[in-house]
């Protein structure tokens, strides 16, 4: 049932987009070889290993539009160990290390194309039901309290970087997450990564509502720090 609804709303989304602009033409011709534009997310390990780039079929639920427009013109690395991480690591003398020779720069778009693509991507919203469940209150958290929760109490730093050279490498850097991602998406993803991407290698840590709020406020504050500006 859910799947049917998703399929239906997605088809409508796609149809709408292709009337609206050339964004979908670009996506289909230049991007669909690496990015899934129609869903569903990988359901088996084989499928998730074969994934060549992040899923974009729920881009409108996930990204901030201003960030998309900028990043598509000047792409920078987000996942230190690429996608799928195990294809980009090798044994090192002290521990496994990233093999940079396996990571290729991302294609860049002109301003006009980036805007057209961002317009189209923002119409892809098959997961709005999950987003609607999240309410971000307007509290704040100090960077030091946030970091304590992120590193010590919840152990998120094991896989994510919270500054350019601190933290784990198998997940995307999070010191830029506040610029890149919608706050409700962050909350929903932390609540259940598997609801977005059933085979992903981020575990559900059963974070409490209060800590989810704290983490989202922290990630938003973190990306406003000067040294994290990109």
């Amino acid at each position: 049932m859910n799947k049917l609804l998703i399929a239906l709303s997605l088809t409508c989304g796609l149809a709408q987009a292709s009337w609206a602009d050339g964004g979908m033409d670009i996506l289909k011709s230049q991007c669909s070889s690496c990015h899934n534009l129609t869903g569903p997310a990988p359901q088996t390990l084989k499928e998730i290993w074969a994934r060549k780039g992040p899923d974009l079929f729920y881009a409108g639920n996930r990204y901030r539009k201003e960030w998309l427009i900028q990043w598509l013109q000047n792409p920078t690395q987000i996942r230190p160990a690429g996608e799928f991480y195990e294809d980009h690591i090798k044994p090192g003398p002290k521990r496994d290390v990233v093999d940079p020779s396996t990571l290729k720069p991302h294609v860049a778009l002109s301003k006009a194309d980036a805007e057209a693509v961002a317009d189209t991507l923002m119409t892809l919203k098959p997961k709005s039901d999950l987003i609607a469940k999240e309410k971000i209150d307007d509290g704040t958290v100090s960077l030091s309290m946030g970091e304590m929760a992120f590193d010590k109490f919840l152990g998120c730093m094991a896989c994510h970087r919270i500054e350019p050279d601190y933290g784990g490498l198998s997940g995307p850097e999070l010191y830029t997450a506040g610029k890149r991602l919608q706050p409700e998406y962050m909350a929903s993803y932390i609540r259940s990564p598997q609801a977005w991407d059933p085979k992903i290698w981020m575990p559900n840590k059963h974070v409490s509502d209060g800590n989810i709020q704290k983490l989202v406020h922290y990630l938003e504050a973190l990306s406003k720090e000067k040294e994290n500006g990109k």
Partner: peptide, 8 residues
């Protein structure tokens, strides 16, 4: 000795 361990 995983890829994530340096700062753990």
């Amino acid at each position: 000795k995983g890829v994530n361990i340096r700062d753990m």
